[in-house]
Simulated assay, not measured.
Amino acid sequence: MGEAIERFFATLPARAPAVLRNPIHGTLQVDLTRENRTEHWFVELSPGSVRVLREQLPADATFTVSMDLFERLVTGRAAGMAAVLRNEATFSGNVALFLLFRRFFPDPPSARDPRETARAHLGRSG
């Protein structure tokens, strides 16, 4: 397993207060596949906190993705929703949990806040 993936899961509890402000509670099983092997991560989400275990447990939702793609997700080189829509990853269960979990993925390095782009455009034209 890649260092970026390990670091991603290790930092979730510290990042949770800033990311998880919705009153949603639930559990998410993240299954990372590579060839004929699957690594399991169990993530318990609640407002302002996350608990992460390296186990396969019953969950409210399951996100299944290749390790390679997940590494691209956690480094901002791919987008979670786009991966699901392209069927490169699968999701089942409570969709709100996936929408909440994907907030932990960083934006692509070239991403810009649309408000900044609009302000820059208005500054040039005004």
Rank of each mutant, 00 (worst) to 15 (best):
T33R: 12
F70W: 04
A89C: 11
Q29P: 07
R124K: 15
G80V: 06
G48D: 13
S92E: 15
V50E: 04
S49V: 10
D113R: 06
F9D: 00
A82C: 00
G2N: 15
E71W: 04
V84K: 07
V19M: 09
R77D: 05
T11R: 11
L32I: 01
F105T: 02
R54D: 05
E3P: 04
R112C: 14
R51H: 12
L32Y: 03
T62M: 04
F91Y: 08
H121F: 13
P58M: 02
T33I: 11
R124A: 10
D113W: 03
R86N: 14
F101M: 00
R77M: 03
D31S: 13
P114F: 06
A59Y: 05
S49G: 12
A82Y: 09
S46F: 13
V95E: 14
F63M: 02
L53A: 15
N94Y: 01
F63E: 09
H25A: 08
E39T: 11
T64F: 03
S110I: 08
A4R: 07
A59W: 01
A111K: 11
V74H: 02
T33S: 09
N36A: 10
L99H: 15
F63P: 06
L122V: 06
H25Q: 15
N36L: 08
M81C: 00
W41S: 05
E44P: 02
P58F: 01
E71Y: 05
F104G: 02
V19Q: 06
G26H: 07
F91L: 12
A82M: 07
A118L: 13
A61G: 12
F101D: 02
R15Y: 01
E71G: 06
